[in-house]
Design a protein around this nucleic acid. Structure first.
Length: 299
DNA sequence: TCCATGTATGACAACCGTTC
DNA sequence: GAACGGTTGTCATACATGGA
């Protein structure tokens, strides 16, 4: 798969829009909804404009418009109607589609404009929970199904991280020290998916706690330096792909022995990897949360 | 060459909402 | 309640493609 996508297969469209390939074919046949190009062997391929149209059609369809009615709309009426409905309330779903399109086209301007529009009626926190989290989940599926490349994923996640960092900067000058506890945020060795941890950093700073963000791929022994300086540490980490499932208990036991045993320190973990963990089968002073918002509610 | 997988197409059926 | 139209799913068949 090329990084720069100018053509999409019917399967790509299925993955990006959620509309089954068969249904796309039927819509084409019965309503002339799209006019794909064909290979020498009659295989369909679609351009970015077709993807954009199908995302808009899907949006209208999800908002109660019959496909027969949508197909009767003129080409230029569809985006107008989409914007109208988005402004009436379903702005967030529309924004996810716009962000996906921005990702596929490497279109930073579309990203910034969509984000700015969202910001007119929503807080940054709302945008993260209600738009970015949903978008990131979809990106995970698109990655698994080989619909997008690492370049697409890096492009969109970097832009999202940029927004988180800007918002952290806005709140980090607030005087911290609600308590003597220090929050230390890190990812385990070889773990690089840091968006969740970065947003957690934002939430903790917002709450006025002292927070040290160490970021990606931090070996356990490097955390020892923190122990020498602080005595009441709440370590926080996000396990997306590391440690491996068969290594996770060993990792937690080593963490407990090295950094928690005989201290007031705690470790809180979140992320995909922790979902199959048995909460009753982890060492003392280690707690598992299913999501960032459930953790933040407990602050 | 064979086989697995993906795609295209057509026919048919089930389900749901609307209309009469 | 029956008829109808729209939507989606399933199945069968044929063909293309890529790897062993």
């Amino acid at each position: 798969m090329n990084n720069i996508r100018t053509e999409f297969s019917i399967k790509d469209l299925e993955n990006l829009t959620g509309i089954k390939a068969h249904t796309i074919r039927i819509w084409e046949k019965r309503y002339n909804l799209l006019e794909p190009m064909r290979s020498d062997t009659n295989i369909r391929s679609y351009n970015v404009e077709s993807l954009q149209k199908l995302l808009n059609v899907t949006f209208l369809n999800n908002n109660g418009y019959k496909i027969s009615k949508i197909s009767n709309l003129k080409e230029n009426e569809i985006p107008v109607l989409v914007r109208e409905i988005a402004s009436r309330g379903n702005q967030k779903h529309h924004a996810i589609n716009a962000f996906k399109l921005s990702m596929m086209n490497f279109d930073q301007t579309l990203f910034y404009n969509t984000y700015s529009n969202l910001l007119e009626n929503n807080s940054f926190r709302d945008i993260f929970y209600e738009v970015f989290l949903g978008l990131l989940e979809e990106i995970g599926i698109l990655w698994q199904t080989d619909t997008i490349s690492p370049a697409h994923e890096h492009f969109i996640t970097t832009l999202i991280k940029q927004k988180i960092l800007v918002n952290i900067e806005k709140v980090q000058n607030l005087e911290p020290m609600k308590s003597k506890q220090t929050y230390v945020l890190f990812l385990p060795d070889h773990e690089i998916h840091d968006i969740g941890l970065l947003f957690l950093n934002y939430e903790i700073v917002c709450k006025g706690y002292h927070c040290i963000f160490l970021g990606q791929s931090v070996p356990i022994n490097c955390l020892q330096d923190l122990i020498d300086k602080y005595h009441d540490i709440r370590f926080m980490s996000y396990f997306t792909v590391k440690p491996e499932m068969n290594e996770i208990h060993d990792y937690l036991n080593e963490f407990y022995d090295t950094l928690l045993k005989g201290t007031k320190n705690k470790l809180t973990i979140l992320g995909q990897r922790t979902r199959q963990l048995d909460k009753n089968n982890v060492p003392d002073n280690i707690e598992i949360y299913p999501s960032i918002d459930s953790l933040v509610k407990d602050f």
